[in-house]
Design a protein around this nucleic acid. Structure first.
Length: 238
DNA sequence: TAGGCCATCTGGTCCT
DNA sequence: AGGACCAGATGGCCTA
């Protein structure tokens, strides 16, 4: 059962009055864990009430003015400390959340790298941007599927899947996509949304797709022309 | 120097 | 309650 926050703050007040610095015990992991427990158990910030019940009584006693002022000073210090502690608590949670978010984005980037590694690569090692990777993968999958469909229709004997895509091989298109000049044809921007490849089921996409044994096993109607008429190479999976 | 891309931080929302 | 996910903001780096 975690201690209420005010109890915790009260204890911390004692600690500070005995010479401990606030920043000192904030760096103490045990105290931090305790504070986190206390804060989570008590919900929103609770103003410190330490010493409050004695104030009215003290004012009735002769010579209690100094004592009363001292209590006010202590109360003020306690509030400042509790605010600092809550701020510190929020801060530590934020830091942890940032860390998780960073890891999450790293995982996402790793997945994107994995996707890049199975997409056709280019000689100059041009690294596709994130959006290019996703759109290229989309187009690539569609083109492969279309290749298989047309090959199964037009070529007799055997499986087009086996002929065109040996299990150990992945097609590799030579030549860079020149992302800048062909940004739109690669699927970025509003124009890409109207591209046939943005909708594989569209008639335009099917019409644009061609297959010829002397040409690449697949072609990308929206890719640069020099990319469409190059001999495909096959590189092994690793 | 403007624009694109990216990493990171941040607060809000949803889910378990 | 805590974590995952998301989108906006910000600043750094690079290139045309």
């Amino acid at each position: 059962m975690p201690a209420p926050l005010e109890t915790c703050i009260s204890d911390l007040d004692c600690a500070s009055s005995s010479g401990s610095d606030l920043s000192g015990f904030l760096t103490d992991e045990e105290d931090c864990a305790r504070l986190q427990q206390a804060a989570s158990a008590s919900g929103p910030p609770v103003p410190a009430r330490r010493g409050a019940p004695n104030i009215s009584r003290a004012s009735e006693v002769p010579g209690a003015q100094d004592d009363q002022q001292e209590r006010r000073r202590r109360r003020g210090r306690t509030r400042v400390r509790s605010e600092a502690l809550l701020h510190s608590l929020r801060r530590s949670r934020r830091v942890k959340a940032n860390d998780r978010e960073r890891n999450r984005m790293h995982n996402l980037n790793a997945a994107l790298d994995a996707l890049r590694s199975v997409l056709p690569s280019f000689p100059d090692d041009t690294k596709l941007t994130k959006i290019e990777t996703l759109r290229f993968a989309y187009n690539y999958i569609w083109a492969l599927a279309e290749t298989l469909r047309l090959a199964d229709q037009g070529l007799p004997g055997g499986s087009a899947r086996e002929r065109l895509l040996p299990p150990q091989c992945v097609p590799c298109l030579p030549g860079p996509p020149s992302p800048a000049s062909d940004a739109e044809s690669w699927g970025s921007g509003a124009a890409a949304a109207a591209s046939p490849l943005s909708d594989p089921s569209s008639p335009a996409a099917s019409e644009d797709f061609t297959y010829s044994p002397s040409e690449p096993a697949f072609s990308f109607p929206s890719l640069p022309k020099d990319l469409l008429h190059t001999t495909p190479c096959f590189i092994p999976y690793h």
